[in-house]
Amino acid sequence: MGDVAKDLVAGTVGGAANLIVGHPFDTIKVKLQSQPTPAPGQLPKYAGAVDAVKQTIAAEGPRGLYKGMGAPLATVAAFNALLFTVRGQMEALLRSHPAQPLTVNQQVVAGAGAGVAVSFLACPTELIKCRLQAQSALAEAAAASGVALPKGPIDVAKHVVREAGMKGLFKGLVPTMGREVPGNAVMFGVYEGTKQYLAGGQDTSNLGRGSLILSGGLAGAVFWLSVYPTDVVKSVIQVDDYKKPRYSGSVDAFKKILAADGVKGLYKGFGPAMARSVPANAATFLAYEITRSALG
């Protein structure tokens, strides 16, 4: 099996592990990010992450925490296979000879290149996911217009295409790239840097699973620390109405979030995102490394 095929398979397994572990956290993150700013004197829909979990389970049952999972589940293989495959090919281009380990700086470049590639797949996938996750926030607007809310990923996609054409599926592409490119650059750089630190050198082939879990968890945490406000902007744009949008673009969304909620508005849902990032990314990298090693 060639290196590309190995990265495809290992990336698929890693992505599945990430989704299973992390999706409930992601659901709460999007609910908090997309809830409207309350009128003066009124309380927000969710008091915080724990309250969002309680309200979601009360209204929809535990399955509500996995709402919107169909869209990323349908594309998780392609997304993570693409991420790790492009990263692998970038690594091959950066090496002066096949057996040479990459430096941390080279891993940063490889991660940025992978981020560009996956942005075009992540944008429509996350738009569908976010609109399903945020349906409770969209319900009032839908009821006022007499339009029934979409029932699942395919229904959401059809609704979006009817509203805005195929280009509507790529709403939020700019902030998606603003998240994926620097985020993956930092994530892969931190992952490799942590592995090399734990291994005491560039040869990390003998690291145990505990070291891989630690490296992957730390890398995931740094990803979200570095790009979280961009993710908030992406989420509000992607759940925005197509016919009567509140935001004209990323800069406008950024300004309006700051004006309405201050800097803290750019960190709505930060707790669930960070709680998700460590176990989900640890699972991703561990599953990837184990699978890649098993494939030879």
Rank of each mutant, 00 (worst) to 15 (best):
153 P>G: 15
121 L>F: 14
166 M>I: 15
115 G>T: 08
197 Y>P: 00
32 L>A: 03
296 G>I: 07
13 V>A: 15
107 Q>E: 15
261 D>S: 12
255 K>Y: 10
75 T>K: 07
199 A>T: 11
192 E>V: 05
81 A>P: 01
227 V>S: 09
65 L>Q: 02
85 T>F: 09
148 A>E: 14
213 I>R: 01
48 G>S: 06
19 L>G: 02
99 A>L: 12
137 A>G: 13
169 L>D: 02
252 D>Y: 05
201 G>F: 08
69 M>F: 12
228 Y>T: 03
132 L>G: 00
118 V>D: 00
187 M>S: 10
258 L>R: 12
31 K>M: 13
68 G>I: 05
94 L>Y: 12
25 F>S: 03
138 L>G: 02
39 A>V: 00
31 K>Q: 13
277 S>E: 15
276 R>H: 13
232 V>F: 12
142 A>H: 14
63 R>F: 09
167 K>N: 05
269 G>A: 12
172 G>S: 09
96 S>T: 12
205 S>T: 15
244 K>F: 11
296 G>S: 14
71 A>L: 06
116 V>S: 07
176 T>E: 12
23 H>M: 13
270 F>E: 05
222 V>H: 09
295 L>C: 05
61 G>K: 06
66 Y>D: 01
36 P>F: 14
116 V>C: 11
255 K>E: 13
80 N>Y: 15
156 V>E: 10
127 L>G: 02
154 I>A: 12
76 V>D: 00
132 L>F: 05
6 K>I: 04
233 V>N: 03
87 R>L: 12
162 R>T: 10
46 Y>C: 04
55 Q>W: 02
88 G>P: 04
113 G>E: 08
105 N>Q: 14
25 F>L: 07
27 T>Q: 15
110 A>Q: 08
291 T>W: 01
20 I>Q: 02
128 I>R: 00
221 A>R: 03
93 L>V: 02
180 E>K: 10
47 A>L: 11
137 A>I: 02
188 F>N: 10
275 A>H: 03
259 A>I: 05
218 L>K: 04
131 R>K: 10
115 G>F: 11
175 P>T: 07
101 P>N: 04
175 P>W: 08
227 V>L: 08
9 V>Q: 06
123 C>F: 04
78 A>G: 03
237 I>D: 07
252 D>M: 03
199 A>P: 06
92 A>E: 12
138 L>M: 13
262 G>Y: 09
44 P>L: 01
44 P>S: 05
175 P>D: 06
226 S>T: 10
176 T>L: 08
239 V>A: 09
113 G>T: 01
65 L>T: 03
290 I>P: 00
195 K>I: 00
82 L>P: 00
194 T>A: 15
93 L>D: 03
196 Q>P: 08
104 V>R: 04
86 V>E: 13
14 G>I: 04
111 G>W: 08
12 T>E: 04
